[in-house]
Design a protein around this nucleic acid. Structure first.
Lengths: 255, 255
DNA sequence: TGGCGAATGTTATAATTATAACATTTAGTG
DNA sequence: CACTAAATGTTATAATTATAACATTCGCCA
């Protein structure tokens, strides 16, 4: 990449970090070049900055590109169905622990339906979304930021969780093994997840069918630790109804 | 507002909270109406959702509407000049405390120029921006979220700050009184600000000319507590050079 | 200095999005 | 049931944004 181009991209990146978004026209003026040049610059590195509707935005700012049309045409996709089911366990006035990951994001929108809730989270993306809900009190558990899971980690996390009156814990997992071991990708998530499970009155695990029979690096619980498993996996449902020991209630969602 | 319309807006708001953004076409499909109806819906409540370039976004997500053109034409506006000046006090490897408010946002973009930094903050908007900088280690001090200042408050904050090795504290103020008292709007900011001032090796206060001679509800320091005052106010500079007691170094920025 | 190629600017045209005007449907009411 | 008014849909047109083609400038090197 040419020197000039790189300089411009740096300048734009800097501006975007503080401004959030920038009109193509302003970007051109800022760099002292034509709009076409900015367009060409952005074409060379489509990863970091994207251009939508004449505006530059940080690529990472973009939400998941999931197409909401499915919601109506083919029924809600797994993620939405799981969250809708999980919603039925939430009551007015609850204090919810919301785990990191993308599984629970659709739930956050539904929280606008309540008059008063408290949300506790250690995930930055969850915090950002919940901050936009005027009816929800937000408590963020901070620490060192881990970009991979957009969440915070640290020794104080677990202790802080134990100090809160958490009503219901909504936990996500990357894997639910056949031995009932529940695992996730990142080790720093283990402590907060375990603390939330230990503290909460009701523990709800969400895991779609792709997570079943899978083991990830960090074990943090067994299925028996949960009160409810929300899943769309029919097989798991049958197996558990057949009478396996220490099994939670199963809340199945159908396609 | 009609019942149907309100329902649609609720549905869209929910979708936006989890998706972040939504194409007009998808929004129309989702609600089962025409795009024109969605446009009309949005016209009736322009506060909560805005439509740019065919995409719906949460209005609060929008960055400040400041026009970057000024940066070139009329020189950088105060905010940018202050941050550029503050930048000169930052060195490779520093651990920075970044205060809440909008004053320091332009600085965050400049941080991309360093190879390794650590940023400590209790502000959600700062955290969100810094999370996009791959070269910066981010530590967020969590707590109860205060929408008014987009920052967190709580008893543990100050204690946590004292436990960190903060190199330089960049502090913002809403008022710097003639009696040298430095104040801000919100009381929950006092504890973290004071803890950062007490812990940091170097304390840098940023205050543009509009803040001078102003007193806000919450006092948190006096000018003498700082090592550097970054300002664009010429009068203050002169007064302090005339030999007032307990005065920090003055870093003036010129228009 | 002349020429070459990359970078940038300019212009024309296509595609998309915004607005306005008018047509149709829907819900409610006497 | 017919009428009305609001809500919604449809279409045409304007404005904006995207793309492509070609012109110009700039820097470099023989």
């Amino acid at each position: 990449m040419s020197d000039r181009r790189e300089e411009r991209l740096n300048l734009l990146t800097e501006a975007l970090i503080s401004e959030g978004t920038l009109h193509l026209r302003d970007a051109a003026t800022l760099c002292g070049v034509s709009e076409m040049t900015i367009r060409r610059d952005l074409h060379t590195c489509p990863e970091s900055i994207s251009l939508i509707g004449g505006r530059l935005i940080k690529a990472s700012t973009q939400a998941s590109a999931y197409d909401l049309i499915e919601q109506q045409a083919l029924g809600y996709p797994a993620k939405y169905r799981l969250c809708q089911r999980a919603l039925s366990f939430i009551d007015e006035g609850d204090t919810l622990f919301i785990d990191c990951g993308s599984t629970l994001l659709p739930l956050l929108g539904f929280l606008a339906r309540f008059k008063a809730l408290t949300v506790v989270t250690y995930a930055l993306n969850v915090a950002t979304s919940v901050a936009g809900l005027p009816n929800v009190r937000l408590i963020v558990l901070g620490g060192l930021y881990y970009p991979a899971s957009q969440s915070f980690g640290g020794e104080r996390l677990a202790e802080q969780i134990r100090g809160l009156g958490i009503n219901k814990a909504l936990i996500t997992a990357a894997g639910v093994g056949d031995d009932q071991g529940v695992s996730c990708f990142h080790f720093h998530e283990v402590a907060p997840k375990q603390a939330a499970i230990a503290t909460a009155e009701k523990r709800i695990l969400l895991a779609d069918t792709r997570k079943m029979g899978v083991v990830r690096p960090a074990y943090f619980a067994t299925l028996g630790d949960f009160d409810v498993l929300v899943t769309d996996d029919e097989q798991v449902s049958k197996r558990f109804e057949a009478g396996l020991a220490s099994m939670p209630d199963i809340a199945i969602t159908w396609p």
